[in-house]
Design a protein around this nucleic acid. Structure first.
Length: 279
DNA sequence: AAATGAACCTGTTTGC
DNA sequence: TGCAAACAGGTTCATT
């Protein structure tokens, strides 16, 4: 379900729900076999704690408390939603009961039909530090941070022989780019998805960095893409799917040159591109 | 070391 | 209509 823009929207939605630093009253786990077994007893250390903030790193969400973080990943089909008691749905795996002040309570549900998602606990950090976790430590730069710049990208990929599409989706190169946005970024950059990293020039790198940021930012500004069932934590749908230039457009005319958009499969994932505009 | 493909799951769409 | 195959926003792991 989510690439960076969608996870960012969920993050912002949770942040607005957590205004006033609600307290985690109780976790109710309905099953523990997601992609990895959920460390339930560790996560329960957070019961009774105030939520001090919500952060996104790559496609991971981190709920911050004094005693550590709740880490969640939405996999392909995960979601967080407000679910008042009585609203139980198939594939809800966790309910979090929150208390604001003394009276009002709120319940959040984590739902994930395919169970590719992750729930985990992350140790608290020293002030100003960065949360350390086996799933976070190897990650490359955030696309909007300074560390992601043309010279970095070029250096990182100049000796790689795999296709640029796969490299762009490699989280150790840059985080947040998934299957949909990779096609959109490459189209706007004029780079063929099968081009090897070794064949990416300095000019291409500049274009790729610029277009990565541009596409992801525009998607965030549209509230993300809702092509199947994605909604943010407040139930709102995104609309960036209306702005796709190539994704899902097989055999439709290229919006720039009119040639037909092609679909190929790379590492088992669909890629859409224009063979005239992208070289 | 780096590239490739399989694996993890369920639900929905597509094609015969 | 029915059923099987293909496909879906992600990531890790084992194998070349």
């Amino acid at each position: 379900m989510p690439e960076l823009p969608e996870v960012e929207m969920v993050c912002r939605g949770l942040r607005s729900l957590f205004k006033g630093s609600p307290r985690i009253d109780r976790f109710e786990f309905l099953r523990e076999d997601l992609r990895f077994p959920i460390p339930i007893s560790k996560i329960k250390r957070l019961e009774g704690e105030k939520i001090l903030g919500v952060h996104r790193r790559s496609k991971y969400l981190l709920w911050e408390t004094k005693k550590g973080f709740l880490l969640s990943h939405l996999g392909m089909t995960g979601s967080w939603r407000v679910a008042p008691p009585g609203e139980e749905r198939t594939h809800d795996h966790l309910y979090v009961y929150l208390k604001k002040g003394t009276s009002s309570t709120m319940r959040l549900a984590y739902k994930d039909p395919r169970r590719f998602g992750i729930l985990d606990y992350v140790e608290p950090i020293v002030p100003g530090g960065i949360p350390s976790h086996v799933l976070l430590d190897h990650l490359g730069p955030e696309p909007f941070q300074e560390g992601f710049h043309p010279a970095y990208l070029r250096e990182k990929i100049k000796s790689r022989t795999s296709p640029i599409k796969n490299i762009l989706m490699d989280a150790s190169v840059v985080v947040g780019v998934g299957n949909i946005y990779a096609s959109e970024i490459l189209f706007r950059s004029g780079v063929h998805p099968r081009r090897k990293g070794i064949k990416i020039t300095q000019k291409d790198s500049e274009e790729l960095v610029r277009r990565t940021r541009e596409v992801l930012q525009e998607a965030i500004d549209s509230g993300g893409s809702s092509i199947r069932d994605y909604v943010n934590a407040n139930g709102a749908e995104g609309s960036y799917q209306m702005k796709f230039l190539v994704y899902g457009k097989e055999k439709k005319p290229c919006p720039v040159c009119g040639n037909l958009i092609q679909k190929i499969v790379q590492s088992g994932r669909s890629t859409f591109f224009c063979s005239h505009c992208q070289t």
